[in-house]
Nucleic acid binder design. Structure first.
Lengths: 247, 247
DNA sequence: TGAATAGTGTCTATAAGACAGTATAGT
DNA sequence: ACTATACTGTCTTATAGACACTATTCA
């Protein structure tokens, strides 16, 4: 008890190390699209525990340099990929006594999306990090409970794609509606009807047309190119798309 | 570096207290409906810091007795209200260097819903905890960043009510469709059209009719009473209701 | 001219909004 | 009979699904 002392006195004598506290980490599921496949960035662990296994990029908070939890995620990603991610969304926070052999551990799981090229260029120089097609990840023995974390992030990605314009973030600008539809289909793992897709996106008035480009595969009718309009990233549809409903 | 040692050796020499780590807490926004008002449970802090201020129930993880982060939330709520909450949903995790005067601090914010009576009965015996109408909370000087946490939870409540059957959890069973609609309206802070509401709920086949009851206010046509069917709590609509769309 | 890609017209199906109507009780 | 509450009929509106059709380019 601290009866009769002031808050200043209390804070003065307070030392966090007098109490048991869990390990606190941040992990990031960074997704991209490459060669018509959804890919996720993994790093090979160089230290114990689970040395040598593939894991999500992440790590401990630096109490000195990080001012927000968010900053820790951004910093860890920058260290691994050289990319400043625009969109960084919290998926879930998982904490229990089993997930880390060092003891009771909590991780805040974030999710991010980037176009493929710039990250890939940087990644070439880092031998312990690479993109993995999401289907191959299932076969890898990941560190800690990262298989579960990957699953959580992938499900969130699928669900949010059904009522947002999240896939815009995996495309280089400008892009065609065909490319955007392919991105939606890969992130949702579903096939979408062309007319419905175009009607939905165009009616939302979230894209600006910025000229013409060559069609996919080099031949065929030239395609209109688009760029997202201001604040279009936050656009929410009032109806889900492609019968996609799950928890 | 830990070159050339085994994982067992590494774990043997590992001591979490060798590293700086943030404070890790759990906070719960427990909502109920009473006298046609959305209410939230707050406790008056008995210890520093922010002694005497109202705050969300919550606290530190007990590394010995809690095996999941979830368990910490359940335990803290049970200690304050005597209620075992069925539904406990993660809202967000907030961490930064400013929110707690004791230092870098992270909190996992949960949200829960209960029917009013049983909690209230227990609360009577606890002098430092009470239900507050959500509108009055805005005027209170809450501890830490709890005003922001209350806001986050309230927004999540509003959004999820637009495509789930969350409000079922604030009603005692059985309930009438009129009562259910009132619950939806209060949680969404919107008015719903009666026919649309009933059509939506009944078509979803998530309720079982279990007899008749007296109408609201005692007079008028008797009302059909319902109980949620098995697994109905997870039901998701593919379309939002009542024009409710926000972040 | 044929193949490939981009883009449209239009009918149907589903579910919400609006709102007036009917049904069944108490006083 | 009047009022209060519960519940329904039905027309309109919005948007997705289906799918055949047209448009523009290259080889």
């Amino acid at each position: 008890m601290n009866q009769g002392i002031t808050e200043a006195q209390f804070l003065d004598q307070y030392n966090p190390k007098d109490y048991d506290s869990p390990l606190m980490t941040v992990d990031i599921a960074l997704f991209t699209l490459h060669e018509s496949t959804l890919q996720i960035l993994l790093v090979e662990r160089g230290d114990h525990p689970h040395k040598g296994r593939w894991a999500l990029p992440g790590g401990f908070i630096d109490l000195k340099s990080d001012t927000e939890l968010h900053d820790t995620a951004k910093r860890k990603l920058r260290e691994k990929t050289g990319v400043d991610v625009p969109l960084l969304e919290q998926v879930n926070t998982i904490g229990n006594a089993r997930r880390d052999p060092r003891g009771w551990s909590v991780t805040a799981l974030y999710m991010a999306l980037v176009p493929h090229a710039p990250t890939a260029e940087f990644i070439e120089t880092v031998k312990d990090a690479r993109w993995w097609p999401i289907d191959e990840v299932r076969k890898l023995p990941l560190a800690f409970d990262h298989a579960e974390l990957v699953h959580l992030a992938r499900e969130r990605l699928k669900n949010k794609t059904a009522y947002t314009v999240l896939p815009i973030h995996v495309l280089k600008q400008p892009f065609s509606l065909t490319q955007l539809q392919q991105a939606f289909e890969l992130l949702m793992d579903a096939t979408l009807e062309k007319k419905s897709f175009r009607r939905r996106i165009l009616n939302a008035e979230i894209l600006e047309e910025v000229g013409e480009g060559v069609p996919e595969g080099g031949r065929g009718r030239p395609t209109a190119l688009y760029r997202p309009a201001k604040n279009s990233e936050q656009y929410l549809f009032t109806r889900v798309f492609g019968d996609a409903v799950s928890s």
